[in-house]
Nucleic acid binder design. Structure first.
Lengths: 147, 147
DNA sequence: ATAAAACCTAAACCTAAGTTTAGGTCAAGT
DNA sequence: ACTTGACCTAAACTTAGGTTTAGGTTTTAT
């Protein structure tokens, strides 16, 4: 059993954030002693799940829905499975989007490294694509199509 | 030269969002004719960059800083390079975090598929880890360490 | 027994990134 | 010339996810 201060340190979360999560219903079965919260293993498990799902862009309301389903027993197993399959797909496409964004960023890194070397990017704007490294070149050709 | 309505369709952005970006200074050199915005190729380029960097979690203020540097000429080349190198690292760690989150999600998918098959997750809570698929098993062992 | 540290609530406040509303102006087709 | 659709601004409103503040308990250490 942990106090809110211990949890705060353990997971490096602001105390007010933990209280806010509680207010939003993210610890459906948390215990109290004289009004003071006592976090047990299942509450710690909730925090780990919250932290993880938040990273994938899941809203606190959705996460609460899952945690509530967990306390409601076997009748909600299908809902829970469906939720995780959806979140898996969302996360896969996020990774994909980030990789695409990374291509632009890598291009810009190459561009500004060259520009800094030359002291200017004037000549770089009309550079022959055959003077670009291969990955940069193929990104550049694709990028031009958006316009 | 495009109107705001054309840009809105082309990039599937709400018109108010584009006006908001303009208000925030994200089209530093946009032209107007009788008060009406005319988007040229460089404004289109800005939109592509904005969309891309936003996905990596960059704030509009940071993006504006970059766009402003672009209009200020060669003296800001170093700043721009530094910004993209930082953003590259941030994006790489975001991808990493998402992959970690995906491990939990894959575990949960496995867990609830099993549970749905069995009609209950009671027995699953004490399952022998040797009955888990290998990837699931290695995630599970690691996950237990957080507690 | 008492002071300090850690806990509590309710409510106000904050920020980013928009969206909505109200009241107007401009441009294109008939 | 006139109507309609597309454009304009300023300002209020919205949402999520907190953070801060003010005023009050509880626990812990001396």
């Amino acid at each position: 059993m942990y106090t809110i201060g211990e949890i705060s340190k353990k997971f490096n979360l602001n105390i007010s954030t933990i209280r806010y999560y509680d207010k939003e219903g993210l610890f459906p079965n948390i215990k109290r002693k004289n009004g003071i919260r006592k976090f047990d293993n299942s509450d710690v498990e909730s925090i780990l799940v919250i932290e993880c799902l938040k990273k994938t862009g899941m809203k606190l309301k959705e996460i609460k829905k899952f945690l509530d389903w967990c306390t409601q027993g076997d009748s909600t197993l299908n809902n829970r499975l469906k939720m995780f399959i959806e979140q898996k797909n969302k996360t896969l496409s996020q990774i994909d989007e980030l990789k695409k964004a990374l291509n632009l960023i890598n291009y810009k890194c190459w561009y500004y490294e060259e520009a800094v070397k030359r002291g200017s990017d004037k000549d770089l704007k009309n550079i022959d694509i055959n003077n670009m490294p291969n990955e940069i070149k193929s990104f550049y050709i694709n990028w031009q199509k958006n316009k």
